[in-house]
Simulated assay, not measured.
Amino acid sequence: MIAVIADDLTGAAELAGIGLNHGLRTEVSTTVDEHCNADMLIIATDTRSLPVDTAREIMHDLTVQLLQLHPRFIFKKIDSVLRGHIVEELQSQLTASGLKRALIIPGNPHHSKKLVGDTFHYNGEPIHLSDFANDPTFPALSSNIIELLRADGKIRLIKKEDNLPSTGIIIGAADDEQDLKYWIEKTGGDTLLAGSANLFSCLLEHLTPQQTVTTSDPETTGRRLFVFGSTFYQGKLNLNDGRHNNIPVHYVPAATICAETSGDNVHALFASHVASSIVAGNNAIIAINPDFIKDIKVDPVLLSHKMAAIVKQVIEHTSLHELLIEGGATAWAILERLNIEKLYPSKLIAPGVIHMRIAGNNQLCLTLKPGSYPWPAPVWGTNNYTCI
């Protein structure tokens, strides 16, 4: 078994899609099942949204539990632009596992996220010049790799010509996929490897033979709800008469965003309106209008729970075939609200965009996507893609 711990749900789903594409029987879960017989078990967490002490404790406990399954190795999925409590979580995992060394390979060359020297670039420019500088929780206020990791002097950046230290947390510079493969070949079971989906894909190619997996299709009804929980791309929505790609967009009311509670009574009228839109046309989008939050301070965790409460109420008003969710924290809050603990990837629609079946539910499917990835064209056509 290959084990993975991801610090957010969409990151976990992204690796599940890679496992599926590689022919591995893959399972995404929020808990460690001692009876799991999957080829690859991915534990999804929401530690990126939690206080650092809580994140550290969760990582320690999950690492201990996974080691009892005797996995071939444990991979740590981190954000490709280094948001989250990365150093603290790795330190906790090292303590739990008894390993002496962790190697962070930042970035994702496939998505123009790479480390050049000690400067992290996104789309060819230092990341602090990008929209990631406006992230509500972990803004990229610097492009220096040590500062981006919010680390002290205990971690080192090394290049390929440098000797690999035997202890500590190390950053390996990677400009392209060949660099990713170089670091993989330099490490083994004595190293906790941490990185993005691009690194994990190279790791699977290096370690595992191809296999064949067959999954069954869930029943379909055609009713879909898109939930745009991230504001990364929402300012770029191409609206035509209140529609995006011919699907009606419903902005969460400003009063709901500003409310101090996520109580269901705050969302009832809006949820009913969205449900009616789905009944009329099979599709709807829930989104956050950037203009509503431009001049106010919004708690991103509370906002995720508000979105989850709205989704649950929409489902209570009308049956759905598919939830398409953008943003890891939002996806986590929705799964919590719907009591979903286990998922099985069924189709890789595009890199990072994964269609998944829900354990014990033959009607509702999920499609998950990180907030900074674009939605691929196939999702906009009703039922243009199915599970495999």
Score class of each variant (00 low, 15 high):
5 I>A: 03
10 T>P: 13
11 G>I: 11
16 A>T: 03
23 G>W: 07
32 V>T: 01
32 V>D: 05
35 H>V: 04
37 N>V: 10
38 A>C: 15
39 D>E: 14
44 A>V: 06
46 D>P: 06
47 T>A: 02
49 S>E: 02
49 S>Y: 01
50 L>Q: 15
57 E>A: 08
59 M>W: 03
60 H>K: 13
60 H>S: 06
62 L>E: 00
63 T>Q: 01
63 T>F: 00
63 T>H: 05
64 V>M: 08
65 Q>K: 15
66 L>W: 04
68 Q>R: 15
69 L>H: 09
72 R>T: 12
72 R>M: 11
79 D>G: 01
83 R>A: 01
86 I>F: 03
87 V>W: 00
93 Q>Y: 03
105 I>G: 03
106 P>K: 00
106 P>V: 01
110 H>K: 14
112 S>L: 15
113 K>V: 04
114 K>F: 06
114 K>R: 14
116 V>M: 12
117 G>S: 07
118 D>W: 03
120 F>P: 07
121 H>R: 11
121 H>V: 09
124 G>N: 07
124 G>E: 06
127 I>G: 00
127 I>P: 07
128 H>G: 00
136 P>E: 03
137 T>W: 02
139 P>Q: 04
149 L>N: 02
159 K>R: 11
160 K>D: 04
160 K>E: 13
162 D>Y: 09
164 L>S: 00
165 P>S: 05
168 G>K: 02
168 G>A: 05
173 A>S: 14
177 E>N: 10
178 Q>P: 00
179 D>M: 10
181 K>S: 14
186 K>V: 05
187 T>M: 11
189 G>A: 11
191 T>I: 10
193 L>C: 06
195 G>R: 10
197 A>V: 06
198 N>L: 02
200 F>W: 06
201 S>A: 13
207 L>I: 14
210 Q>R: 13
210 Q>P: 04
210 Q>V: 13
213 V>I: 15
213 V>D: 09
217 D>V: 11
217 D>C: 10
218 P>D: 02
221 T>I: 15
221 T>D: 12
222 G>V: 00
230 S>P: 08
233 Y>T: 07
236 K>T: 03
238 N>S: 08
239 L>I: 01
248 P>M: 08
250 H>E: 05
251 Y>A: 04
251 Y>C: 05
259 A>F: 07
259 A>P: 08
260 E>W: 02
264 D>M: 12
268 A>E: 13
274 V>L: 12
275 A>I: 08
276 S>G: 15
279 V>N: 13
280 A>Q: 15
284 A>T: 02
284 A>G: 09
285 I>P: 10
286 I>L: 11
291 D>S: 09
297 K>N: 14
297 K>Y: 08
303 L>C: 07
304 S>F: 01
306 K>V: 09
311 V>A: 07
317 H>E: 13
318 T>V: 14
321 H>W: 11
322 E>L: 01
326 E>W: 08
327 G>N: 11
329 A>R: 04
329 A>D: 14
329 A>S: 13
332 W>M: 05
332 W>V: 02
334 I>F: 08
335 L>M: 15
335 L>Q: 13
337 R>E: 13
338 L>Q: 06
341 E>R: 12
346 S>H: 05
347 K>M: 11
347 K>W: 01
349 I>A: 12
354 I>G: 02
355 H>G: 04
357 R>G: 00
358 I>N: 06
360 G>T: 06
363 Q>H: 14
366 L>W: 12
366 L>N: 09
374 P>W: 00
380 W>C: 05
382 T>F: 09
388 I>Q: 12
